[in-house]
Design a protein around this nucleic acid. Structure first.
Lengths: 210, 210
DNA sequence: GCAGCAAGAGAGAACGGTCTTTCTGCTTGG
DNA sequence: CCAAGCAGAAAGACCGTTCTCTCTTGCTGC
């Protein structure tokens, strides 16, 4: 029967806003776990380690995250939120859809050069969660679907201005493929050559449209 | 129930040959582990599980593989050997370097459609072994270096016949980037669209050369 | 030709460690 | 008051690894 869940005080904490309660300890746990998960892998990082570096205690941890998997989901949700914010900003800033695509590509290329860069958090997580029915997997798929859809819409707008150049779905798929490859290979083969290849690839994809 | 497979009279177990001793039990352990590692992840598969499915006993396991890491290295070496054999065959069969590149690309695209396909074994392993000094990491890097070098040489031959078209290193890097992306995204986003995107990408890369 | 022996393989117990998770107390701030 | 956080013990499972013991097999010295 597992009376596990403390009746859930149901947030005296956090007045409105999203689903999650905010608290110092929670943020400390989440940011510490995110850093460790991304750097060393999810399965490789135990709860003990997170508690030591946050720091926090077990009780606090399990009050905010009923299981480690919830923490993993929160970690990926955080990365997803950051990326959506960045893409949204790029779209709103850019004077035209093509510029937005350029900015998104540049953001990818720039991220490769960060000293903490270790690849795509979602692709890495997918390697550790092979079960398609897993909740973690759903977050990954949702993120990727959003990304591809967003790019498809941007390419559709570009194609709308300059027709007869191919399907937006194809261009978006090509973009995502190059992005996935660049993010997978950059920290293995060397940031410079891979980053340049990606930049050339995006440039080629965009100049093809004219 | 009990262990049926008495190894049969069997060979005198390898007189000369390479570094590793061959034996039925060893091959059973390695092929079982390879299947499980690839499907479910390396850290997620314990020794117990491998022993149960091989089947074999602990003593046998640790006689052939001093530690689990040795088994992981053997697993990746096996994948590497298969891939090198395939590429070598493609090169020897093809009438010209460009045909070899086409064949290598087609092999990648075809592999995506296999029902057991789960992505690139090396990229997945890299996600689970982040330490650059790890022996597993060395195998991954060696494999990737070989692959890129081989492609660079092929492109160099193509460029040699039809000059002034760009650097072979750039073309090879672009090819590898698309391959990595296709193998990472295919089983997440759908085999068909990603496979088609990769095929179009390779075709574009090759027709650019004329 | 055969006794004897080294070695591969099977069976299973057990080690210490780490994993996630649960629990019971104690302290503190609004 | 009381919920959040701190502190620590501990459960129970699983991890990789080591160990002992038996059985079979194939080779070698006599």
């Amino acid at each position: 029967m597992a009376p596990r869940t403390r009746p859930a005080p149901d947030s005296p904490n956090n007045g409105s806003s999203g689903k999650q309660g905010r608290s110092e300890a929670r943020e400390r746990l989440l940011s510490t776990a995110s850093r460790l998960f991304y750097r060393e892998g999810i399965r490789a990082v135990g709860v003990e380690r997170i508690l030591a570096e946050a720091p926090a205690t077990r009780a606090t941890f399990y009050r905010h995250f009923p299981s480690k998997e919830d923490l993993v989901v929160a970690y990926l949700h955080g990365v997803d939120a950051d990326m959506r914010a960045g893409v949204r900003a790029a779209i709103e800033t850019a004077p035209a859809p093509e510029d937005a695509l350029r900015a998104i590509g540049a953001a990818v290329a720039d991220s490769l050069t960060s000293p903490e860069f270790r690849g795509c958090a979602f692709l890495k997580a997918a390697a550790e969660y092979p079960d398609p029915d897993d909740q973690v997997r759903r977050v990954i798929l949702d993120h990727r679907a959003w990304y591809t859809t967003t790019l498809t819409e941007l390419f559709a707008q570009v194609f709308g201005n300059s027709p007869r150049r191919g399907k937006p779905e194809h261009a978006a798929r090509h973009f995502v493929m190059m992005r996935d490859g660049a993010m997978s290979g950059a920290h293995l083969d060397g940031v410079d050559s891979v980053g340049d290849a990606f930049r050339r690839g995006v440039e080629g994809l965009l100049t093809l449209l004219h």
